[in-house]
Simulated assay, not measured.
Amino acid sequence: MATRVATTIVRSLTRQTSPRLLSTATGTSPGLVGAEPAVATWWIMSAPVFGARNASTMTLAEKEQKEQKEEAVGGGGGATEAAAGGQKGKEVASYWGVPPSRLTKEDGSEWKWNCFRPWETYEADLSIDLKKHHVPKTFLDKFAYWTVKSLRLPTDIFFQRRYGCRAMMLETVAAVPGMVGGMLLHCKSLRRFEPSGGWIKALLEEAENERMHLMTFMEVAKPKWYERALVFAVQGIFFNAYFVAYLASPKLAHRITGYLEEEAIHSYTEFLKELDAGNIENVKAPAIAIDYWRLPANSTLRDVVMVVRADEAHHRDVNHFASDIHYQGLELKDSPAPIGYH
C-alpha cells in the first residue's frame, strides 16, 4: 500500500518538474516503480532540487555535448598540460557569450597581465620639477601640512631605512585619496545631473596608477605578516578619515594629498640614495614594471624608483591644483581635468 501511494505521488511530481530533466520515454524516473518506500520517500524529498528554477541556464543535453566536444578537442594534450600544472588552456564557460580578451605585445608575444592593458602603459616624464613645494599660508593649509608631517614620524620609526617595505606601505595609503575623491565626485555628478569636467576619471586614474606602484613593489619587497596587518589597520583608519575630510572640505582633502605626495617624493629620493650607496641591491626591474612604464628590458630597480617618483610629483601637482580651484571659490568641474597627467 505504501509503495502505491509513493508511486502515485512520484508520478504527480514528475508532471510538475522540467521535462528536460526526465526520461523522454516514460516521463518518470526509471527504477522508481516498485522501489522500497524509503527510497521513494528520499526521491520525493529531493525532487524539488531538480526543478527548472534551480537548473543551469544550459540544458543537460547542451552540457553533455559541450563535455564531449572538450574531450574530443583536448585529447591527450589536455592530460599532459594538466600534468604539467598549466592552467593556460582553461577558460570560463559563459552562457552570456562574453569573449575573453586575447592581447599581444608589439613583438607578437602574449600579453600576460590582467591588471592593466597595453593601452594603459606609458613612458614617465622624468623632467618634472621635484623641488616644487606649496608653502602653507592659510589655517587649513597649515593643518594639512602638519597632519602629514605628524604621520611621517611613526613611519620613520617603524620602517627606518627599509625603503622597499616603506614604499609598499606608502602606496597602500596613496591609492586611497584618488578613489575616494573620484567616488564622491561620481555620486555628486549623479545627484546634480551635471558633468565632472573629467575629474572623476583623473582621480580614478591617479588611484589606479598608485595601485600599480604597489603591484610593482610587491615583487621587490615581501612584506611580513605584521606589516600586512599594519596595512589593514592604517588603510581602514585613513580611508574613513579621508572620506569624512573630503565630505567636509574638498580643498583640505586635496591639500593633504598634495603634501602626502611631497613626502612620497622625499621617501623615494632617500630610496635612490640608498641604491646609489650600495646599501640596497640594485636588482633587475620586475617584468610588470618594464611593461607598465615601457622601460628597456635591462632596466633595474633604480629605474623603477625614478619613474615612480616622477608619478608622485605629477600627483602632487594635480592635488595642489585641485585644492587651489576650491580656494578660488570654484568647483572642479569648472576647470578641465589633467587627464593622463601622470
Rank of each mutant, 00 (worst) to 15 (best):
V148L: 03
N279W: 09
I288Q: 01
D291V: 06
V231C: 12
T216D: 00
T57Q: 04
W199G: 08
M1P: 07
M58A: 07
L32A: 15
T7A: 07
M306G: 02
R191W: 09
S335V: 15
E71Y: 13
E331H: 07
I128G: 03
S101N: 14
V98T: 12
F143V: 15
H133M: 12
V231W: 05
W96S: 02
E210N: 04
Y95K: 05
R20K: 11
C115N: 03
M1A: 07
G34C: 05
T24H: 09
V231F: 10
K112R: 14
L130D: 04
L275K: 06
P195Q: 11
G258R: 06
M168I: 15
C115W: 02
A322G: 02
A47P: 02
N240W: 11
G97C: 04
K131P: 00
H326S: 09
Y122Q: 06
Y259W: 05
E312G: 03
A167D: 04
G85S: 08
V283Q: 09
L295C: 08
E270L: 13
R316S: 04
W43G: 00
D317V: 14
E261R: 11
T216W: 01
P118S: 11
E261D: 01
V307W: 07
E219R: 08
L252R: 11
T121Y: 05
N279H: 06
E262N: 10
P296Q: 13
S18M: 04
T26V: 12
P250R: 05
Q87P: 00
F139S: 08
L330N: 15
D334P: 05
V307Q: 01
A82Y: 04
P30K: 12
N279I: 04
A264D: 11
G75H: 13
K66E: 06
G236H: 08
K142S: 15
A207F: 01
T216I: 12
H134D: 11
F217H: 03
K251N: 03
L203A: 12
H266V: 09
M183I: 08
D303K: 10
N319C: 13
S267P: 02
N54H: 10
A248W: 10
F143P: 01
R11N: 14
G108H: 09
G97Y: 07
I44L: 03
R53D: 15
R53A: 07
E67L: 10
I128N: 10
K273N: 10
P19L: 01
E281L: 11
L275D: 01
R15M: 02
K132Y: 13
A6H: 07
K66P: 01
A313C: 10
H186E: 04
G197P: 00
L272Y: 06
G340K: 08
N209K: 05
Y163Q: 04
V49G: 02
S23C: 10
I157P: 02
W119M: 06
R11K: 11
H254C: 08
A61R: 11
I237M: 08
P195A: 14
L170A: 07
E62F: 06
F139L: 08
T121A: 05
Q87L: 12
A313S: 12
